[in-house]
Computed example of a mutant assay.
Amino acid sequence: MPSGDRRDELLDAAEQVLSRGGPQALTLQAVADEAGVSKGGLLYHFASKSELVRGLVERLVEDTNNNYARWDDGEPGSYTRAYIASTTHHLTAADADRVLRRWSVILAASTEPEMQGPIAEAFEAWMWPEPAVDRYPERAQIARLAADGLWWNAMFVNAFRDPELNKRISAALVDYAEGRDHPEA
């Protein structure tokens, strides 16, 4: 098996440990046990817990950026539509549990002081895109924040994973962001 695949399997195992037990459960031994490898096998890929968390954060940021790019159609307001589509689509996709687990990484990053900067930079970029990408910037910001709220709540409230409800909420957020909910906007 290629090294990159093994590395992803180890990161998946770390996410499983995090999603079940929170940041306090994330130990190198727990991840090794989850992945079915020796602690030495884990240390070959990640020399410390900090390196493991760094790998989790880097993968989260890369995957999130790729998701946004995938949904971005290049039209005015496309970033916010991509943000909302990416967020809401993954709540109802077949891999929703895996995708939601990725956000447990943020909890782990909060326990590693050197990771708070990279995660903050990523959120800064996601929440504050380049100026003039949206016709109504404040509305777009509110819609992105609401999409994040939907995401966080879907981790605990299964109703928010319902495809039809999700589709309606997503459409309402886009309409709000683009001023279509209010004729005077």
Rank of each mutant, 00 (worst) to 15 (best):
M1W: 08
S3N: 04
S3P: 00
S3E: 05
R6H: 11
L11T: 13
D12G: 13
V17R: 08
R20A: 14
G22F: 15
Q24Y: 06
A25P: 12
L28P: 10
A32C: 08
D33Q: 13
A35F: 05
V37H: 10
K39A: 07
K39S: 08
K39C: 03
G41A: 07
G41P: 14
H45T: 08
S48F: 03
K49N: 04
S50A: 13
E51M: 06
L52Q: 07
L52E: 05
E58Q: 15
R59D: 14
R59S: 14
R59T: 15
V61Y: 04
E62H: 13
E62N: 12
D63Q: 11
N66D: 14
N66M: 10
A69W: 07
A69Y: 09
R70G: 10
W71Y: 15
P76A: 05
S78T: 11
S78N: 11
Y79T: 08
I84Q: 07
T87R: 01
T88Q: 03
H89V: 00
H89G: 09
H90K: 08
H90V: 00
H90I: 00
L91H: 13
A93G: 03
A93W: 04
D95Q: 06
R98L: 05
R98N: 10
L100S: 13
W103F: 15
S104T: 13
S104R: 10
S104K: 06
V105D: 09
V105I: 12
V105G: 14
I106W: 13
I106N: 10
L107Q: 15
A108T: 12
S110V: 03
T111V: 06
E112R: 04
E114C: 00
M115C: 05
M115W: 01
G117K: 06
G117H: 03
A122P: 01
F123M: 06
F123V: 04
M127S: 12
W128P: 00
E130V: 07
A132M: 03
Y136N: 14
P137T: 08
P137M: 00
Q141I: 01
A143N: 11
D148K: 05
G149E: 01
L150D: 01
W151R: 15
W151T: 13
W152L: 08
W152R: 07
N153H: 12
A154F: 05
A154N: 09
A154D: 01
V157G: 01
V157C: 04
A159M: 08
R161E: 08
R161K: 13
R161H: 10
P163K: 05
P163M: 01
E164P: 00
K167E: 15
R168G: 01
R168N: 12
S170R: 15
S170A: 11
A171K: 15
A171M: 04
A172P: 00
V174P: 00
D175P: 03
Y176G: 04
Y176I: 02
A177I: 04
A177N: 15
A177G: 09
E178S: 08
E178G: 05
E178C: 05
G179S: 07
G179W: 02
R180V: 02
D181G: 10
D181A: 09
E184D: 12
A185F: 06
